[in-house]
């Protein structure tokens, strides 16, 4: 059986700058894959190519064996890809529940219906999704007044509305308090494993990455420089060099210090 997501030779350049080049990887259903790397490594570009927001210059993205390169985000979504954004994107003029209801209506192909009250549509399903992310108590609240951590959880509920096979989460815990981060990722990992959803996420918080990821990929200057289990990646000298520096100056200074 082929992998849920199979990416081959993905490349994107802006002018002369290679934002992403030659990225290849595979993701199986029910596994959690982390994509890490320093700022400007090309993580977000990678993500935006995966869900169709940016068209790659080269490469192939196959979802369950089917090519999805060139499809707009809405078509990629229809094939079962949920997505959360680095900066939350929700509908501030609606209530929390209505945010989920819109996604559900779209999933059930009912958004062109011109009669009927949308606020009454798919209520139990919306409430179930909200309960899943621990937001059921806030269903009636205006989305525009939510705290940022709650918005992130709401985004997760929206992203789960189309019963996705693949979840793309761009920095899911950015801007959250430490405890909230741990809670949200535990919740995501639990949902993913229960439902067999493949999750690809980027993250700067290494605690989050190493607690939940089955595998970790490291992106630097648009290229994958390491792939493996969290343990392997932790010990990779190249990865250490990127995150901690080559040590040239630090070591030299300390050698001088000890010599003196």
């Amino acid at each position: 059986m082929s992998a849920l997501l199979q990416v081959e030779g993905l490349a994107k350049s802006y002018g002369g700058v290679h934002a992403v080049r030659g990225v290849s990887f595979a993701l199986d259903a029910g596994t959690i894959l982390a994509l890490i790397g320093p700022n400007g490594a090309g993580k977000s570009t990678c993500f935006n190519m995966l869900n169709g927001q940016i068209r790659p210059n080269a490469g192939s993205i196959k979802l369950e064996g089917q090519e999805i390169v060139g499809l707009p985000p809405r078509a990629v979504w229809r094939r079962g890809v949920g997505r959360t954004f680095q900066i939350t994107a929700t509908f501030p003029s609606m209530t929390v529940r209505e945010n989920v209801q819109v996604a559900l209506l779209s999933f059930h192909h009912k958004l062109w219906a011109m009669v009927g009250y949308a606020g009454a549509a798919h209520r139990p399903e919306a409430d179930r999704l909200l309960a899943l992310v621990g937001m059921e108590a806030q269903a009636e609240r205006p989305c525009g007044e939510l705290a940022y951590g709650d918005l992130k959880r709401l985004e997760l509920a929206i992203a789960l509305a189309n019963n996705p096979k693949l979840l793309l989460m761009d920095e899911p815990t950015a801007g959250m308090a430490p405890k909230e981060r741990v809670d949200l990722m535990r919740l995501t990992a639990k949902i993913a494993r229960e439902k067999g959803i493949g999750v690809l996420f980027t993250e700067h918080d290494m605690d989050v990455v190493f607690e939940h990821a089955d595998a970790v990929m490291v992106l630097n200057r648009g290229e994958l420089i390491a792939t493996g289990t969290p343990e392997q990646v932790r010990r990779d000298p190249q990865v250490r060099a990127i995150y901690l520096g080559e040590g040239l100056l630090y070591d030299a200074k300390h050698r001088e210090g000890s010599a003196a």
Binding site: F85, S93, W112
Partner: peptide, 16 residues
């Protein structure tokens, strides 16, 4: 109606 909600959704956040 669902159409009106979809329209507001497109207004509130094109990205989402």
């Amino acid at each position: 109606s669902p159409f009106g909600y979809g329209l507001r959704a497109a207004r509130d956040s094109t990205l989402r």
